[in-house]
Design a protein around this nucleic acid. Sequence first.
DNA 1: TAGCTATTTCAGTCATGTTTGAAATCACTA
DNA 2: TAGTGATTTCAAACATGACTGAAATAGCTA
Lengths: 151, 151
Amino acid sequence: MSTEEQQDRLLRWVERVAAFCVEEWGLPPITGRILGWLMICDPAEQSAGQIADVIQASRASLTSNMRFLTAIDLVKKVRRPGDRVSYYRIEDDAWQKVIQRKLESLSAFGDIADEGLDITGGEGHRTERIKAAHDSLTWLQNLAARHPLRR
Amino acid sequence: MSTEEQQDRLLRWVERVAAFCVEEWGLPPITGRILGWLMICDPAEQSAGQIADVIQASRASLTSNMRFLTAIDLVKKVRRPGDRVSYYRIEDDAWQKVIQRKLESLSAFGDIADEGLDITGGEGHRTERIKAAHDSLTWLQNLAARHPLRR
DNA sequence: TAGCTATTTCAGTCATGTTTGAAATCACTA
DNA sequence: TAGTGATTTCAAACATGACTGAAATAGCTA
C-alpha cells in the first residue's frame, strides 16, 4: 500500500471517528476530526498547522477548536523551549472524561424531577411517570459511581 | 394558586424537561416539550391537538413529531372505537429506552476501534490511544448489561 | 353519501450554529 | 528594533434542519 493510500485510509478512519463524535456527543464535525486525528497520528503531538492541513480545515477554525478542546481538558497544549509553535496531544483519559461528564450532566434531571414531584403532589399517575424517569437516569449514575474504570 | 399560575408552572417545568432533552439527547426542542408534557399531563393520554395547543406548536409539527416518537417507541398511539381522534401517551419505560439505546449506540465505536487497530498494527502508542478509548466506551456498556434496572 | 373535523403532506421560510477569510496581534529571532 | 511566522479575533457566508401554513386526505357521523 502506497503512503498515499495509507494516508487516505487514515483520513477515512478519522472521518468515521468524527461522525461518531457528531452523532454521539453532539460535537461539531471539525472538532470530531481533530479528536480522530489526534488519536491515530504519529507523533502524538501535532501543531495546529499540521492538524489543519491534514483534516483540511482552516487555521482559524483550528484555533477556536483547540482552545475549546484544551479548555475542557480533552487535549493538552504542549510548548517546547525555543520553539514558537504549540503542539497538542489528546489526553490519555479523554474518552473516559467524555463519558464521565455525560453521566454527571444527567444529574441535572434530579432537580427537574424534584420540582415535578412537587407539582404533582407526590402521588398519582403523574408522579409515577416522573419517578420512573428519575429512576432510570440515576440508575446508570449509581452504577458508574460504584464501578469505576481502572486502567 | 390560580389555575392560570398552575398552568404556567406546568409549562415552565415542561420547558425545563425540553431543555434537558435538547442538551442531553440532542432532541429538537419541540420533541422535548412533547415528552415533557406527556410526563406531567392529566389525563396521561392526549390528542395531537391538545398537545399542540398547550406547548404552542403547530399541528403540522405535532404530526411529524408524534410519528417520530411513536416510531421509536417512546410514545404509544391510542385509538378509541367511535372516536376519530388519536391519543398519545408516553411509554412507562420511555426514559429507560432512551438510555438503553444511547448505550447501545456506543457499540458502533467497536468497529471503528477495530479498524483503527488494524491500521496501527496492534502495537505502539497509537494503538494504546485507541484501546483506551475503546475500553472507556465498553466499560459502561458491560456495566449496564450486568446490572439491569428492575422496576 | 354528504358534511364535518382532525390529521397529514409538502414546499417555503426561518433560525441556529459552524466555518471561513481577512486583518490584527503576538512571540520569537537576528 | 525590524522581520518572520504563527496565532487569534471578528464579521460575514454558509449549511443544516426545524417550523409553519395551505392544501389534500382520511375517518367518523348523520
